[in-house]
Amino acid sequence: MNARKKRRLLFVSFLLLGGAGAAGLAIAALQDNVMYFYSPTDVYAKHVSPGQAFRIGGLVAKHSVHKGRGAEITFTVTDGNKNVSVDYKGDVPALFREGQGVVAMGRLTPSGTFQADQVLAKHDEKYMPPEVVDALKRSGHWEEGKAQQ
């Protein structure tokens, strides 16, 4: 390899290192903002103040969904460690159900419940036919929402 080629290769390495370094610094600085949602544990740990808009994500806790009058619905978001109860008025996505991943946009009320303006479903990375799920359930190997974070 001649000297010129070596110098150019050094230049390319510098480009990649520089780009990666800049991206790394930007990502580190934005770390908290790049998070799409807080888990219930985060909500407690960060002492989010009432009225501040943010997203909360986790699993819809078992037996926590209650439909009120009209489109009103309440449920609990859990990450297995902490729970936050959510009030929402509006349509929920087709995938919304107990044990399913959910992300809600809204704010905490002074009483500590989460008032949601929007509810989105977060499905996990598992794909399988219904028969496989039935077989897993029959054999006792099925864990709803286990892959969720």
Binding site: L16, G19, F37, S39, G57, D124, E125
Partner: peptide, 25 residues
């Protein structure tokens, strides 16, 4: 070449941060 830095960011975005997009299958 500088933009290629974005490729690992796309790949690992679902591991590094909480996202609505599901994780790696």
């Amino acid at each position: 070449i500088v933009g290629a830095v974005n490729l690992p960011i796309i790949e690992f975005s679902v591991q590094w941060w909480t996202t609505l997009h599901q994780g790696e299958s």
